[in-house]
């Protein structure tokens, strides 16, 4: 419940506004109207810059990015997932907590804590004091939240996009022989189908959200397992964030599985 002081103070506020305040219209509304004009103009200007500097062709970016990317295609996925900018900080958290045991921290843990802080703020900070220099804890915590979200957003925005590579380059980068046709075909698929967007392989690929798979062959899971894993990861590990690749043919899955099974420590192959 509100304390007596709080009620009294609010009453003082109301009285003071009645006595010294000014009318919303026209005074405050004048500022509001100008600001709204600015907002609408900025939005229209952004739209114009975006449209006139980009090309009609898909993916031809202007100052503010392309008008649209290529049409969605669930089959060829050598595409870097990129959310809108205000989700970059979440997106980058995934890269920090990329290991299976900790990824839940990035996806659920930290966002939940942030959300709870947001909702709890008025109940955590119940003092009446409003002057900024006299609220050091609130201000320092807020600055830390802003700084970390800012840094994560920046890191997410500038994160290296994994470069599309050939299967051979992948194998060479991981000190593996390139003489087995099936392994090379599998490595090619690995590079083209989008695995590198989430997994590192040798010196290539992304640092997450998925684990580095350069040496998964060491686990001795067998080709059958990998075929099933890629076709439908949920069936083997419910709750995993790896997407299913239902559009790959049996032959493609087999090649990928052979390639993964051959990826062993100490140069694979042998």
């Amino acid at each position: 419940m509100a304390s007596k002081e709080q009620r009294e103070q609010f009453k003082l506020y109301k009285e003071d506004v009645e006595r010294r305040g000014k009318q919303f219209y026209p005074y405050a509304m004048f500022h509001d109207t100008i600001m709204s004009f600015v907002v609408v103009s900025v939005i229209a200007a952004l739209a114009a810059v975006w449209y006139f500097t980009a090309e009609e062709t898909a993916g031809e970016a202007g100052v503010l990015g392309p008008r649209y990317a290529e049409p969605a295609d669930p089959a060829t996925t050598s595409f870097v997932p990129r959310p809108d900018w205000y989700f970059y900080f979440l997106f980058y958290l995934l890269r920090i907590f990329k290991w299976p045991e900790s990824v839940i921290l990035g996806t659920v843990g930290i966002p939940t804590i942030l959300m709870m802080l947001l909702f709890a703020l008025p109940f955590l900070d119940r003092r009446r004091e409003r002057r900024i220099v006299r609220r050091p804890v609130a201000v320092v915590v807020a600055l830390m939240v802003i700084a970390s979200m800012g840094i994560l957003t920046y890191k997410g925005a500038t994160a290296e996009e994994p470069s599309a590579t050939s299967g051979e380059a992948l194998l060479v980068g991981n000190d593996m022989p390139t003489d087995d046709e099936q392994v090379v075909a599998g490595a090619d698929l690995f590079a083209k189908v989008g695995c590198l967007n989430c997994h590192a392989y040798g010196s290539q690929g992304a640092d997450g959200p998925g684990p580095d798979v350069s040496e998964v062959g060491d686990q001795g899971k067998g080709e059958e397992y990998w075929v099933q894993w890629i076709r439908n990861p949920q069936s083997l590990k419910p709750g995993t964030s790896m997407p299913a690749f239902p559009n790959l043919t049996d032959e493609q899955l087999q090649n990928l599985a052979v390639f993964l099974e051959a990826s062993k420590s100490g140069g694979g192959g042998g």
Binding site: A69, P81, L90
Partner: peptide, 26 residues
């Protein structure tokens, strides 16, 4: 923002949504 991003149905929106939904499902 999340739901609107998918609507153009291009590669960017599709793959960002794949990841976003998987995160939620997690």
């Amino acid at each position: 923002g999340l739901t609107g991003y998918l609507l153009p149905w291009d590669q960017t929106s599709y793959w960002a949504t794949v990841v976003a939904i998987n995160i939620n499902a997690n």
